[in-house]
């Protein structure tokens, strides 16, 4: 969102924005209202979403957050919370590339460093459905590409 606006703004320094660009701006921003709405729903239902994912993960495997004797539930929940929030932000600003290049690729390395590929795989398979449940039929498609990207990078 920001880049399109900034780009248009930069170009409007040198010449008037055309009627088409202004149409685009209007339409693009009209979609922004739905993105804000979806973003706020995810934010307000954060705990509920994270709980649901956690339950489903434990249902699949009771010791999924254990490594040896140590329980990593808290760390995993913290990480998962971050990912959800950054994904919601990527949806709000319609910025997939920044999500991927600015976060997901880096975070994938963390997952690998701690050998959590399997948990990550299950987590990011399960998260999209939990998110969809709090969104309307019109809002869900806004999160879908973000979830798919997240799943494809973190869940491999």
């Amino acid at each position: 969102m920001l880049r399109q606006l900034e780009k248009l703004s930069l170009e409007a320094d040198g010449r008037y924005a055309s009627t088409e660009e202004l149409e685009f701006l209007k339409n693009y921003l009209a979609a922004a209202e739905q993105r804000i709405s979806a973003y706020e729903k995810i934010r307000d239902a954060e705990e509920k979403i994270l709980n649901q994912v956690e339950q489903q993960l434990r249902a699949k495997s009771p010791y999924i957050f254990r490594k040896g004797n140590q329980d990593y539930s808290a760390v995993c929940r913290r990480d998962r919370k971050h990912v959800l929030r950054l994904a919601a932000a990527a949806m709000l600003f319609a910025d997939l590339d920044a999500l991927r290049d600015g976060f997901l690729l880096w975070y994938r390395t963390i997952i690998k460093a701690f050998k959590d590929e399997k948990v990550a795989q299950v987590t990011y398979q399960v998260l999209p459905q939990a998110v969809n449940q709090v969104l309307s039929g019109e809002e869900a498609p806004l999160m879908q590409p973000v979830m798919a990207l997240t799943q494809s990078i973190l869940g491999e």
Binding site: L2, Y39, E46, R85, L86, A88, A89, L92
Partner: peptide, 9 residues
């Protein structure tokens, strides 16, 4: 965007 990096807006 910077805010939303660190917490929900």
């Amino acid at each position: 965007t910077v805010v939303a990096d660190g917490r929900y807006a």
